[in-house]
Amino acid sequence: MIEIQEVTKSYDGNAVVDRVSLTLPAGGLTSIIGPNGAGKSTLLSMVSRLMPMDRGKVLVDGLDVSRAAGDVLARRLSIMRQDNHITARLSVRDLVAFGRYPYSKGRLTVVDAEHIDRSIAYLGLEPFANRFLDELSGGQRQRAFIAMVLCQDTDYMLFDEPLNNLDIKHAVETMRLLRRLADDFAKTVVVVLHDINFASAYSDRIVAMQGGRLAFEGTPEDMIVPSRLEAIFGVDCRVHAVGETRLVNYFE
């Protein structure tokens, strides 16, 4: 369970995240949606202790993220950021192997090697395992980073806009993969998404932020309704039920 309590972050007096309190139960896939500048990524950065918070506190399974030892937390919670710029020339396998650092501190064991192989196989990266990251396409590189998170094998996995720069095929594959992480491996997956329809189709829970505050939270059935979406994004839209999924049409 991730408990976010009254978390605040401000720059020069402007609150980017303003007293957000939220509880994310263990298991399932939670999407965080909201317009640009709503504070989604900032919130995720504070939960994953990449950014210090001005006020408030975040507990992951009772561990205070600002105080817990880095490596203890790194075995509970992992994060994949949207901009993954690396100067070092790494092969896919090297990158995925970094996921084992919290466990083995760089001395890979047989168990680590199994985790690495399994993660690479799970993302279908075997043909590229020895290629360098700068020789891969954007989608393949994205998968390599997801494999690293998978290899870190934490109960909580956070993804900051993992669908950025992906075509439809890779976006769908990525979301299916995150869904499988929640279903097959009982991981708690939290994803910041821009596409409401992906959020609607793949989430167990949707959290909406706006202007640094928590706007709404609920199941896709609660959340994907015109009144709420219009309040969040400020766009007129219609919601259609296609099979069990609700799809939002905001083009007309």
């Binding site: 994953s48 202790r49 990449l50 030892a69 880095g70 490596d71 203890v72 937390l73 790194a74 075995r75 992992s78 994060i79 950021r81 993954n84 690396i86 970094f98 996921g99 650092y101 919290p102 870190q152």
Partner: peptide
């Protein structure tokens, strides 16, 4: 960020 994420 990646380093912090890995517990350094």
């Amino acid at each position: 960020e990646a380093a912090i994420g890995l517990g350094v």
